[in-house]
Every structure is written in C-alpha cells, then in structure tokens.
C-alpha cells in the first residue's frame, strides 16, 4: 500500500487571458499509493477536475501545465501523457454518455477497447467483455444492446466495465455518481470500490460530496482555489480537520440526524475567490475566523504533511 504509483510534484496549470495569466492550479503536490482510493474534494472551481485532467494531459488550450512534474511508476509522464492514457490510466466521467458512443453496441465498444490493449483474438475479447459485464452486474446477454436502452445507473456500470477493460493501474473518476439517485449512487460506489480492491487498482475520486468521500476513500485531499488545503487519512481529516476550511466544510455539511432539527447550520461566510482576484497570502484568509497577520502576507505550504495553514506552524497550534 505504501508504494507510490503516481506522484504529482508542484504542478501549476495556467490560463492565459487578456486580463493576465490565471492560475487554475497553483503549486499542487500529491501522491497516489498503489491500491488506494484518494478523494479530491472541493467547491466548483477549486481545481479538482483540473488535477485529474492534468494527469491525463487533457488540459485544453488556452490552459496548460506551466510547471511541475508528474511521475507514474517512476517514469515522468507530463511531457508525453498519451503513452499511458487509456492503457494504464482510465477515466470515468460524470455523464456516462461522454464515454459511450450512442450509435454502437456496448459489446463492440468493450471488445474494441480490449483488443487495442491486449494481444488476444476477437473471440477471447468477446469472452472477456461478457465477463466484464457480469462483474459490474449487467446480464452478459445484453452485450449487443445500445447504450440508450440502459438506465443512468446501468450506463455508469457499462462505463466502469469499459474503464476496467484495459486492466488499468489507476482510474480517475470525476464525479462518477453526481448525476445518479442516492440509491443507485451507493451501489455504483460499492461496485467501484470492490472491483478496485480485488485488482489492486488505485482510484482518484473527484467529488464535491463529503459523504461520498467519507464512505469511499482511504485518503482525501481538500482543494481550495487551486491549492491543496489539507491532505490525510480520510477518517482523520473528517473527524479532526486541521485546516479551518476543512473544518468549515465538515461543519456545514447537513447530516441525517434526529437531533439536528431547528439548529442553525454552521456556515462559512463569503465565497471562494475568483481566479482573477486572488488574495495575497493564504487564499482562504478573507473567510477565515482564525486568520493571523502572517496569513495575509505569506502563503503557507503543507505543514506537518497535513495542512497548508500557519496555525499548524510551531507555537501557533491553537487548533
């Protein structure tokens, strides 16, 4: 579990606009260990999807990876991500129809994916495709059906089968269950978790839902305004958050709890800064009730392998 499969080192993604250069991701580093599920959580625009896209080299101009390195299995890949994309790393999107061609039978799409990655015969590939469908809980007899004949949840199962077909070492799942009902969401997350555990596949799970993070991931990275605010074991981070932003996120998440009626929800005032109006120092300081003078001037890096917050620095451990 401890071996690093993927290392993201100090990457920045910038967008050149006529108002100047905007940093969508600003000096972000994190590792994905072999076989683990790493969650990336944050508000819309925090850079969580962009991080997944950066790993796969899927950032469209005018955006670009302007600095930093990405290493996969000891090999630097940020220069030529095409070589591992698809083969070693699969992607699952929020909308299953992004990955599925509506005009082709799901079986053909599966077989094609298998054949491009493995030196086997067509008959063997069909066999594998049937097994793949069975694994994700779809009747293999439906191998000749078209995507539109499946419900949203079933379609996402097909997408998972498709993502697993090349036997990748890493799957990047970007809000894979956001479009689904809760009952279906639970099934899909369980399935993804179980299949990856069996094969030792690592997952980067991008989501905005703290509940999904809590129930699915081993470790979690909290992103804020394109920067990593906090990272650690999921249970640790959610039960004992160190960064005031994470604290706020956890506290403002409504819970199904018989005793919460008529209580006021904790709220973080204000909203995340826009990329063209980033404050100096820590990006969170204008909304932070614990902000120190230092926070307004210097940007903290990750302290004690946990959180980018000056409060964790030496004497000032007020938390």
């Amino acid at each position: 579990m401890s071996e690093n499969l993927l290392q993201i080192k100090n990457i920045s993604v910038t967008f050149k606009t006529r108002h100047g250069v905007l940093k969508a991701i600003d000096d972000l580093s994190l590792n994905v260990k072999k076989g683990e599920i790493l969650g990336l959580v944050g508000e819309s625009g925090a850079g969580k999807s962009m991080t997944g896209a950066a790993v796969l080299g899927l950032i469209d101009p005018p955006g670009r990876l302007s600095s930093g390195q990405i290493w996969y299995k000891g090999q630097r890949i940020d220069q030529a991500p095409e070589t591992i994309r698809g083969h070693e790393i699969s992607m699952i999107f929020q909308d299953p129809l992004v990955s599925l061609n509506p005009l082709r039978r799901i079986g053909d799409q599966l077989v094609e994916t298998i054949l491009t990655h493995m030196p086997i015969t067509k008959a063997e590939a069909v066999d594998r495709a049937r097994k793949g469908l069975e694994e994700v809980g779809i009747d293999p007899e439906r191998i000749n059906a078209y995507p539109h004949t499946f419900s949203g949840g079933m379609r996402q199962r097909v997408v998972i089968a498709l993502a697993l077909a090349p036997e990748p070492a890493l799957i990047i799942a970007d809000e894979p269950t956001t479009a689904l009902d809760v009952s279906v969401q639970a099934q899909i997350l369980d399935l993804l978790k179980q299949l990856c555990r069996e094969r030792g596949t690592s997952i980067i799970l991008v989501t905005h839902d703290m509940g999904v993070i809590a129930e699915t991931t081993d470790r979690v990275g909290v992103l804020y305004a394109g920067r990593l605010a906090e990272i650690g074991e999921t249970r640790d981070v959610l039960t004992n958050p160190k960064h005031p932003y994470t604290k706020g996120l956890v506290a403002s998440t409504p819970r199904i709890d018989a005793s919460s009626f008529d209580k006021t929800l904790y709220q973080i005032s204000g909203s995340m800064p826009k990329l063209d109006a980033m404050p100096n120092g820590c990006a969170f300081h204008p909304r932070c009730e614990f902000a120190l003078d230092k926070c307004r001037i210097d940007r903290p890096s990750i302290i004690a392998d946990r959180a980018a917050c000056w409060l964790l620095d030496g004497e000032e451990t007020l938390l």
Partner: peptide, 25 residues
C-alpha cells in the same frame, strides 16, 4: 424528521436513509 430518521416505517424510506452517503463515522 425525528420520527423518520429514528423509526422509518417503510422499506423504501429505510433504503433512502441507508444509501444516503454519510459523513459520520
């Protein structure tokens, strides 16, 4: 809500409550 969260009567309600992802450990 107190009743529903602590003593749901219908299977469907129970299923909804169980599948809602929870941040509580």
């Amino acid at each position: 809500p107190t009743g529903l969260f602590s003593r749901p009567q219908q299977d469907y309600t129970k299923m909804l409550l169980n599948s809602a992802p929870s941040i509580n450990f």
